[in-house]
């Protein structure tokens, strides 16, 4: 099973450009209905399928995404 990951999005810096949405292989991200202080619909996590591949963070022009991934299980 693929390792699980998670993303943390800095919503105040997000400009809602949607570039991360198409980069995600698991369709984890979507745009929110709410807007941030600048008036942009920001990216949010909509499910827990994240595998921590960091594709979204690599293409984010504003570097708002931080990615975490669990460590591989130790071989016994």
């Amino acid at each position: 099973m693929a390792r699980k990951g998670d993303v943390v999005i800095n919503i105040e810096k997000c400009k809602g450009c949607e570039v991360c949405l198409s980069a995600c292989p698991e369709q984890v991200l979507a745009l929110s209905n709410e807007v941030n202080a600048k008036g942009y619909h920001y990216a949010v996590k909509v499910n827990s399928n994240c595998i921590g591949c960091a594709n979204c963070a690599v293409v984010c022009p504003d570097a708002v995404i931080t990615v975490y991934r669990e460590k591989p299980a130790r071989k016994k």
């Binding site: 960091a54 995404i65 931080t66 990615v67 975490y68 669990e70 460590k71």
Partner: peptide, 17 residues
């Protein structure tokens, strides 16, 4: 592993340089 455990400095794979 629950999601809250994944967000942990030792699991960090990508952050702004």
């Amino acid at each position: 592993m629950s999601e809250s455990n994944i967000i942990n400095p030792e699991n960090l794979v990508y952050d702004k340089t």
